[in-house]
Write a protein that binds this DNA or RNA. Structure first.
Lengths: 123, 123
DNA sequence: ACCGTAGTTCGTAACCTATGAACTATGGAA
DNA sequence: TTCCATAGTTCATAGGTTACGAACTACGGT
């Protein structure tokens, strides 16, 4: 089992961050981790009502880790994950807050739209 | 020749924006357009000292356009491109400025590093 | 030593991207 | 009008990336 790779803060790139967060599953994972730090991978076997196979989930965590967005460490049989937002905030001030805010705004917009015509809930 | 597709403002997604700007060439194009509005595609046959084939360039412009980041319109034989940043700023306030600022910070960091050990200029 | 849980790795099919070659659209020049 | 040059687009395809089931590894308990 190869060791986990955590890029040092100066190796983190904007492109990498944007790419990692351009996937809705990863964005959701990151957003959740930003709030409830220390969550494990299997806390995310369901993401916004969608089942994610655990191999896929593992890859998503790897993508977030290698983009420098999260830090993962083994703790017993499971994996504790936490964001590296303090570090990133220092290197790219305002970037993550703006992205998270935009994601929230988008989710809020979806909710408003669903309320207006509730039939489309299963679209 | 199929007509150009410009998503309406409410169809623009955060994921789409992040994905479009997670490519360094597209980010450079967007940054340049944000400053010198009205530039044509062939203004970008070179991007940060790299030659971009024009078919590739065309795809990059399409990606930016269909993510909702730019508006393109034919003017005579060429194509005028401009950003839709005012609209996007309204829908996702602060998002684009934060991303652009981060890209600048990164470029500034690279420049500082190159100055410190100038030998690596050709890496 | 064995089992169950939590994640990782591997193989492969599906999808995405870059690029050269061929094409289309437009505005002059002959 | 016909021809040509310029600016971009589209197509085919090769190479890269991603998703996911199956098989595997790591750890803690019994």
């Amino acid at each position: 089992m190869r060791p986990l790779i955590h890029p040092s803060i100066e190796d983190i790139t904007v492109e990498g961050i944007l790419h990692a967060l351009s996937d809705p599953v990863r964005a959701a994972i990151y957003a959740e981790l930003a709030v409830s730090s220390g969550a494990t991978c299997s806390n995310f076997l369901k993401v916004s009502d969608r089942d994610i196979p655990k191999s896929t989930l593992s890859q998503h965590f790897r993508a977030l880790r290698e983009a420098g967005l999260i830090r993962s460490e083994r703790q017993g049989v499971e994996m504790r994950n936490s964001t590296r937002c303090a570090e990133i905030e220092q290197r790219f001030p305002g970037l993550l807050p703006a992205i998270m805010k935009a994601h929230q705004a988008q989710a809020a917009g979806r909710m408003r739209a669903a309320k207006r015509k509730p039939k489309s809930a299963a679209d």
